[in-house]
Simulated assay, not measured.
Amino acid sequence: MSLSTLTPAQVADFHRDGYVLVKGFCSKEETEKMYRTAIEDDAMRKNALDLNDLSGKKTRLSLWFKPGNDVFGYLTRSEKMVKSVAKLLDSDAPVCHFHSKLMQKEPRVGGAWEWHQDYGYWYKNQFVFPDQLLSVMVALTEANKENGCLQVIKGSHKLGRVNHGFSGEQVGADMVMVENALKTMELVYCEIDPGDALFFHSNLLHRSEANLSDKPRWSIIACYNSQSNLAYNETSTSWKTPVDMVPDEAILEWEADSLSSADFLKKENDPALKETGWEKDVKSS
């Protein structure tokens, strides 16, 4: 199945709720190819970052900036992806790819992600406009309550940016505001199947539990920015480089490079993990 762009109803859902789920965004064949690559490409393992949650369990991710000629680059540069993102960002400027990350929650050991907004991290990169940033999570394996699927607070993007402090090695939202949001808005468990895509706003509050099941939960999350949205504390350049779009069939049909040449993030270079001084004033869980 090929998708060109999101429907007007899906765009309206995104703006109202802060997210929209698109079932079957990637075909079974596309998803299987990406999952196989994620497991077999040694560059993913060598460049994985381990971040401890509050309990000490590890969440593992590999993060890179410029989308290349690998299978994940073809996904993030695909026509169906870029045109869908363009409909959701609050700008007519070209769509740029900020970064992608492979989230690896292994059975029984994969840690939790505390409540946060992506803009809680990206505020430290000094992006100016949160409405011109969003993330797209494509499930490579089934995600459900048992293996720590994403939880979101519906409509919480309308809160604006919530203060963030450190929760373990992660950056977590002020729990006073999170608890207020949970009294006011609906908590939704995003149980999704392989190939489904969840588009969500940079200010949407979300979290996930540790994976205590015997099944892995892997997903690819691509983050996008409008070229008009300047970042004043970001050394990579992909965030201001328009995406070089490719046809949807590239994911399956084009020859794919390894990720070994990708510009992976090193933990010590991430502005979000550095103290700025105001984190200590934030109440974490």
Rank of each mutant, 00 (worst) to 15 (best):
V171S: 10
D42V: 06
L75A: 08
L273W: 10
M34E: 02
A256C: 11
N52S: 15
V11D: 12
Q132A: 09
S2G: 08
H157Y: 05
K66H: 12
S55M: 11
H201F: 07
D244F: 03
V22M: 04
G172T: 10
A262D: 13
K240I: 11
Y123D: 14
V95R: 01
G68M: 07
L259H: 04
K183L: 14
S208G: 04
S236A: 14
L6C: 09
A250V: 04
G18F: 07
D17K: 14
Y35N: 12
A222Q: 06
E146P: 00
L54N: 13
S285A: 14
K80N: 05
G160N: 12
M34N: 00
E234D: 14
L88E: 02
F166V: 08
M245T: 13
L205Q: 12
K145F: 01
K28R: 13
W218N: 12
K57D: 15
E106Y: 12
Y19R: 08
A38H: 01
Y19I: 05
S226K: 09
S27L: 00
A112C: 09
K66S: 13
L21A: 03
E275G: 03
L49M: 15
F129S: 14
K145E: 15
P247C: 04
R36C: 04
C96E: 06
K215V: 09
L204F: 06
G168L: 10
S91E: 06
N229G: 08
G155C: 08
K215D: 11
Q117H: 05
Q126T: 03
Q170Y: 06
A181M: 09
K266R: 15
V246F: 01
I192N: 04
N69T: 10
F25T: 03
R60D: 06
V22F: 02
N229L: 03
L21T: 09
N47G: 08
N225R: 06
L198S: 07
S202H: 05
S100L: 02
G68P: 04
L159A: 07
V188A: 08
V246D: 10
P216F: 00
I39E: 15
C26K: 00
P216R: 00
P247E: 14
H97W: 04
G110N: 02
C26E: 01
P94C: 10
W278L: 13
F200E: 13
D263P: 01
A143P: 01
